[in-house]
Design a protein around this nucleic acid. Structure first.
Length: 554
RNA sequence: GCGCCAGUAGCUCAGCCGGAUAGAGCAUCGGCCUUCUAAGCCGACGGUCGAGGGUUCGAAUCCUUCCUGGCGUGCCA
């Protein structure tokens, strides 16, 4: 619809230039927006105002010339008015709006899909939690947002891959091994002092018990050092499986699970370090190898190899991210918890140093989730072992509600998640509002079918019988959906879809209470069914996109 | 100290690539179930957009200073 008006305006301006009513001869960037106030029409543009300087004429005068030109021929507008300082307000004919419903039906579950991404290949890496413990609620938010962003990009015509980076190398694996080994020895009846920085969660005991049962004999013959290694590997494997399962039941699937350890096995880290050295971006100090990230706007230089020769997490991240681009991704998106934000400058610096445009890496920061119980903060931390897992929350409040909750606000603002509140309110949680709208349409469909009324095809339906304001409003809202998806995708902002969903559901519920299907004349009943099912399709598409189910009954 | 994110209705938040009267949900108050699902609808109440200064015809939106909260500022991840 916007596109149509855009063309109308451009053609109008050309006509003005041709007939001399306007002289600058240059078509400016045309901005069309939906006014807040419905009295100002369906769309408004400020072109006349932005052209004032070039034309050396009053905005309203320019607007008048343009309006005259635009309204000469056939056009989809009911009225085109000049208002205020020089806005041009367009009000479209209802028919123009209802005609757009055809597209919803012809495209079906594809409605909302666009090709603005033009097949650009994008990788979204998210969650990537250390496999040293179950996922907690913060990971859940990252999972919901990352998954939704990936889906949005897919809908916008990008070629998307979802990836989980497994931190199966480094200190935390050793610590994991040490912790499990300590529990194993406890289980054997030994007096053990638990390592100070060890993982204290109960799940470590479970892992230790399983390991003892499965490989107790083998373990008995090992030195402490060997045992820690075995425990570490075993633990990582078990926890990774738990994470996989938790994500699966949260409805998140990855195209690829990428092992950090595999980078070392293929000497990728050494290769990139050599490249950095070759480019003279590193230096040695106090026995460590540093990357001079300050050359590229970082606060301080960063260590790649510690003085004991072991690589930092940053070192493997260099290799990992360069490898991403080597795999052919045009754009790489990392979804990180906000507590890692200090890491961004060094990653960008590293890319710049290696000659890669830093803009190709986009880091989405997911702000903290403040977990509350009855208004009181719940302290979390793997070290203390006391945390609420994503699994617990999903089981308590349900996957749909959980996802909706995580997505309903901008990712870069903090989120209060009160467990008791979420449980108590699960019955009037906003997610049900949207799902309920979907279920209601399905219910009407069932009743209508029983009464022998079917949803008509675009050819059969007579939309001129739809005369209520809210019916027109619904049609307008439906037509906005593709634009919402585009905007949300380009801005990496799934919450926009949530707000749209709420608005659409709200319009629908209102309409449902006013415009009945059953008991009306057949043409009216059919037209309303037609409109209603267009709503259903959009609700379905939007909910599915966010990883939320669209139930037919509630 | 420095850096990042935030500060909008009693609470939780949208709106922020400048536009016409700042919007939702919850809470509060008042209505609507003998007709398609009341997990719903209709209405009311509620605002110095943290504060000051600047840019502009026009600022919640851009710039700047300050205040408040969170996070970061490791040879941890």
């Amino acid at each position: 619809m916007k596109q149509m008006l855009h063309t109308l305006i451009t053609d109008g301006l050309q006509a003005c230039f041709a007939q001399g009513s306007l002289s600058s001869g240059e078509v400016p960037e045309i901005l069309l927006e939906v006014p807040n106030n419905p009295e100002h029409g369906d769309f408004a543009t400020n072109v006349a105002m932005t052209m004032a300087r070039a034309e050396k004429k009053a905005p309203r005068q320019i607007a008048q010339a343009l309006v005259d030109a635009m309204t000469q021929g056939e056009n989809p507008c009911e009225s085109v008015e000049i208002a205020g300082p020089g806005f041009i307000n367009f009000r479209l004919k209802p028919v123009s709006w209802f005609a757009l419903l055809d597209e919803v039906y012809s495209r079906g579950i594809e409605y909302g899909q666009s090709d603005i991404g033009n097949g650009t290949s994008v990788q979204v890496e998210f969650v990537s939690a250390n496999p040293t413990g179950p996922l907690h609620i913060g990971h859940g938010r990252g999972a919901a947002v990352g998954d939704a962003v990936a889906s949005l990009l897919g809908k916008a015509g990008f070629d998307v891959q979802r990836e989980y980076y497994i931190n199966d190398a480094g200190n935390q694996v050793t610590m994991m091994g040490t912790s499990i080994w300590a529990r194993v020895r406890e289980l054997r009846g030994e007096q053990v002092e638990f390592p100070e920085d060890g993982y204290r969660g109960d799940y470590i005991r479970d892992v230790a018990a399983d390991l003892l049962k499965e490989q107790g004999d083998k373990l008995a013959g090992l030195s402490d050092e060997e045992a820690v290694l075995l425990c570490g590997d075993y633990g990582i494997q078990v926890l990774l499986e738990i994470i996989r399962r938790d994500l699966e039941s949260f409805g998140v699937e990855f195209d690829r699970w990428y092992s950090e350890r595999s980078l070392y096995e293929r000497d990728m880290v050494a290769k990139e370090l050599a490249e950095l050295k070759k480019r003279d971006l590193t230096f040695e100090e106090e026995g460590a190898l540093w990357l001079r990230t300050t050359d590229y706007d970082d606060d301080k230089d960063r260590v790649l190899l510690r003085s004991d020769g072991s690589p930092t997490y940053f070192a493997s991240d260099v290799a990992y991210h360069m490898e991403k681009f080597d795999r052919g991704f045009n754009r790489v998106i990392d979804v990180w918890g906000a507590d890692h934000h200090g890491y961004i400058p060094r990653m960008k610096a590293m890319l710049a140093g290696l000659g890669h445009p830093p803009e190709d890496l986009e880091v989405l920061m997911i702000q903290m989730v403040n977990l509350l119980r009855d208004g009181q903060p719940v302290t979390m931390g793997k070290r203390s072992g006391e945390f609420v897992t994503l699994r617990d929350v999903v089981e308590e409040v349900g996957r749909d509600a959980c996802r909706y909750f995580f997505l309903m606000r901008r990712a870069d603002s903090q989120l209060d998640f009160d467990l008791e509140l979420a449980k108590q309110q699960s019955n009037d949680n906003p997610v049900y509002y949207a799902q309920y709208a979907h279920a209601r349409v399905c219910s009407v469909n069932r009743n209508a079918a029983e009464a022998g009324i079917r949803v008509p095809t675009s050819d059969e339906v007579d939309l001129s019988v739809l005369t209520h304001d809210n019916e027109l409003a619904l049609a307008k809202l439906i037509s906005r959906y593709p634009g919402v998806i585009e905007g949300a995708a380009l801005g990496y902002e799934p919450h926009r879809v949530v707000f749209y969903l709420h608005e659409l559901a709200s319009r629908f519920h209102s309409d449902y209470n006013r415009c009945r299907v059953l008991g009306e004349a057949k043409e009216v009943a059919q037209a309303r069914l037609y409109l209603m099912n267009a709503v259903r399709l959009v609700l379905h598409n939007a909910l599915t996109l966010l990883g939320i189910s669209a139930p037919e009954k509630m």
